[in-house]
């Protein structure tokens, strides 16, 4: 099994994560804290999906904010305007996003490196423009309100209910992602990162697996985006903007590319950091940037590499 177990066994990490997620609510004394924690969990989901694409398969995307936002919009519009049940509207939204991602994947993923970055950037901007201009459907720049989320007749109103829902989603996602990484399919994805000729020479249809991982990461982003839209009860084009896409990429890079829990750590830290820095007022963005630069200089393999050092010593 050594071929599958990579660097360190991921299984205990899932248990530790579950434990932490179970303990965190004791520290959440009010709804505002809950709100940040829930946002961190949804961000972590998107980052884990994006990490499969970026960190493992080595394909950059500057459009995942747009995909998450668009997924949220579609679910919101289906419930708000067409009266679909939230669960059903999310399912339809994910289906649409999967088809969209599949359609985009073939032409876009032929490109590599900077060219791929430019192409995805373009996609993100197009989505942003559509969301801003289709006022009839989306409410334009002001955004739109989203119906409350109900599941089997039960409406989610309490913060802890949302926290539980988000935490369960993240844990299941981590488990599935871990199974994916530690499999022949995962090995193909990692091989794409280093050389496309190598997998092709042993019979791998490279384009097919690039498309697959792209679709997976987009669907995960759209799922988190849809749930978040229902949670916050409001969605605006900012949720799908360029800054949002960049923020997600930074989460993956800062946490540790190609490391499953790196994305989680990156997402949590980048969600909390602005909140922790609010007391610095005018200097908030400056300090935020300085911390990111510092981490990248001293931990180029991401924050998760701290655990490696600690483990080697222990």
């Amino acid at each position: 099994m050594r071929a599958l177990a990579r660097r360190w066994n991921l299984r205990p990490a899932l248990g530790v994560t579950a434990l932490i997620l179970a303990l965190v609510p004791w520290m959440l004394s009010n709804d505002f804290y809950y709100e940040i924690a829930i946002l961190a969990l949804f961000n972590a989901m998107i980052a884990v999906g994006l990490n499969l694409l970026m960190g493992y398969a080595g394909q950059i995307s500057l459009a995942h904010g747009a995909f998450a936002g668009l997924g949220g919009y579609i679910a919101a519009i289906l419930t708000g305007r067409y009266g679909l049940a939230p669960l059903f509207s999310i399912a339809v939204s994910l289906g649409i996003m999967a088809l969209l991602a599949y359609g985009l994947a073939r032409p876009i993923l032929r490109l590599r490196g900077h060219y791929l970055a430019m192409a995805t950037l373009g996609v993100g901007i197009i989505v942003s423009i559509i969301l801003n201009n289709e006022e009839e459907l989306t409410g334009g720049t002001d955004g739109m309100s989203v119906e409350s989320f109900s599941l089997f007749g039960h409406t989610f109103t309490e913060s802890w209910e949302w926290y539980l829902l988000a935490a369960l989603h993240l844990l299941v996602l981590l488990w599935l992602a871990q199974n994916l990484i530690e499999s022949p399919l995962g090995r193909i994805l990692r091989s794409l990162h280093d050389s496309e000729r190598a997998p092709a020479s042993v019979g791998v249809n490279v384009a097919r697996y690039k498309s697959l991982v792209f679709v997976i990461s987009v669907v995960v982003a759209a799922l988190a985006g849809s749930l978040y839209a229902f949670f916050s009860g409001f969605i605006s084009p900012q949720e799908a903007g360029f800054n949002r896409s960049i923020e997600l990429v930074v989460m993956v890079v800062l946490g540790g590319m190609g490391r499953l829990y790196g994305a989680v750590i990156g997402a949590v830290i980048l969600t909390l950091l602005p909140q922790l820095l609010t007391s610095f007022e005018d200097y908030q963005t400056l300090i935020y940037g300085a911390i990111i630069i510092g981490v990248m200089i001293f931990m180029p393999k991401g924050i998760v590499s701290l655990f490696d050092r600690w483990r080697r010593r222990g």
Partner: peptide
Amino acid sequence: EICGGMTVLENVMLGFDR
């Protein structure tokens, strides 16, 4: 054309892909 980020064993396993 070797996948540098993977172990030697993983590179061979890639060969068994089919």
